[in-house]
Amino acid sequence: RVIAMPSVRKYAREKGVDIRLVQGTGKNGRVLKEDIDAWLA
């Protein structure tokens, strides 16, 4: 299970990103909004 705040999950869904593919850089591997942006870049 991916650790991410609900707002980040929603952001990823809106961008069409599968959050399971994104490498989290936050505490304990948490996926941050910046990680979604970096994955899209």
Rank of each mutant, 00 (worst) to 15 (best):
V8M: 04
I36T: 00
G26E: 02
L32Y: 07
L40P: 04
A41Q: 15
A41H: 12
D18K: 05
E14Y: 09
D18N: 11
K10G: 06
W39R: 05
K27L: 14
A4F: 02
N28H: 13
R30V: 09
K27F: 11
V31Q: 02
W39K: 04
L21D: 10
S7D: 15
P6I: 12
R20T: 14
K33R: 11
V31H: 02
G16H: 10
G16S: 06
S7Q: 10
V17G: 01
E14N: 11
E14I: 13
N28E: 10
I3R: 10
R30L: 13
R13T: 15
W39P: 01
R1N: 14
L40I: 15
A4Q: 05
D37T: 05
V17Q: 01
D35S: 02
A4G: 06
R9S: 06
E34D: 15
R1W: 03
V2G: 07
D35N: 07
R9N: 05
N28Y: 12
I3T: 08
V17E: 00
Y11W: 03
Y11A: 07
I36Q: 00
N28G: 12
V22I: 10
R20M: 10
V8I: 09
Q23D: 09
A12M: 01
R9E: 11
L32H: 08
R20W: 09
D35Y: 00
D35I: 00
I36N: 00
D18P: 11
Q23M: 13
E14P: 00
G26A: 05
G26K: 03
M5F: 14
P6K: 14
G24A: 07
R13D: 14
D18H: 05
I36H: 00
L40S: 06
R9G: 03
E34W: 11
K27P: 13
G29Y: 05
I19F: 04
L32K: 08
L40H: 06
K15A: 09
R13S: 12
V22W: 02
A41S: 15
K33M: 13
S7G: 13
V2R: 08
R9K: 15
E14F: 12
K27W: 09
A38L: 14
R13W: 15
V2N: 10
I19Y: 04
I3L: 05
G16R: 08
S7A: 09
I3A: 08
K27I: 09
G26H: 03
A41W: 10
T25N: 07
A12G: 03
Y11R: 06
A38T: 15
E14H: 12
P6E: 10
Y11G: 04
D35Q: 01
G29T: 04
K15I: 07
I19K: 00
V31S: 01
E14Q: 12
L32G: 06
A4I: 08
W39L: 08
T25C: 04
V31D: 00
A12T: 01
V8Y: 02
E34K: 15
R20A: 13
L32I: 12
V17F: 02
Y11C: 05
I19Q: 01
A38Y: 13
L21Y: 14
S7P: 07
L32W: 05
S7L: 08
W39Y: 15
